[in-house]
Amino acid sequence: MSQAASSPQWLPGRGRRRFAFDRRLGLTLPAALFVMASFVVPILGIVLRSLFDPGLTLVHYREVLGSSTFLPVFLNTFRIALIVTVITAVLGYVLAYAMARSRGWMATLMLGAVVLPLWTSDLVRTFAWTIVLGRRGPLNNALIDLGLIDRPLSLLFNDIAVVIGSVHILLPLMVLPLYSAMRAVDHRLVLAALSLGASPWAAFRDVFFPITLPGLVAGGVLTYVLAVGMFVTPAALGGPEQTMVAMLIESQGRRQLDWGTATALSTLLLIAVIVSLLVARGVGRGTLVGPGELTR
């Protein structure tokens, strides 16, 4: 019996300490290097760029923080993102709960209603809302037909349109982590609480809800972070009042070619996002995007 055939070196368990570590990490190395080069390094690049002009300086930050246009946009962005996150959390919890408690085709239908919009381009979804909320859209037509209004209401280009559009786009990202958190709940815990005399409401409040809280936090942070960075939806559904940071970065960088301001704005946005992620990590201690949550 030849040595090579009977005991291949690469099998786990043989020479594990010396070889296995290198091989498993080694397989991920090309992709890791690729992401480092095409993501991490460029991000660090804009942080650096925001600090130079051409020498080390804080002039771009002074300009951003001192200007009367940038600060209101930042505050507006966080305000809209917060409203969107709260509404998404409430709706998402209800939907995920119903999904987790259904079986068969009902469960499939609801999962489809979440996954299909998730993978539909956000441009398409935003465009759909411009029709639905438009002056000649189904909502206005229905209200006129019902005799509730005489002339079409202008439902677009305001806070409400931006919030509706954003909630629609972000809801799937809230529902999926919540759904997997709820599916993982051992329902015998709830039954145990019930059998010990807890009312169904108390069993929900004291047992079910705390177990699913990490899922809610994970979904909430993802929603908040992506809401803060929204571009298409506020640009198409909002008016000048609804200008958000991403729109400002786009116009400063791509159109005005003011890279100092654009990179300083991006860095501030980056800091805000990282702080939110760290806060959530402390609260939730769950993974943000676990395997399967994005596609199922």
Partner: peptide
Amino acid sequence: KGAVAALFVAPLVLPLIIVAIALYFA
């Protein structure tokens, strides 16, 4: 393993506008 996995999903949890600016510049 944890660090590598986090690195792979990181682009999903940052606003794409930051990625866009960063890539344009780099």
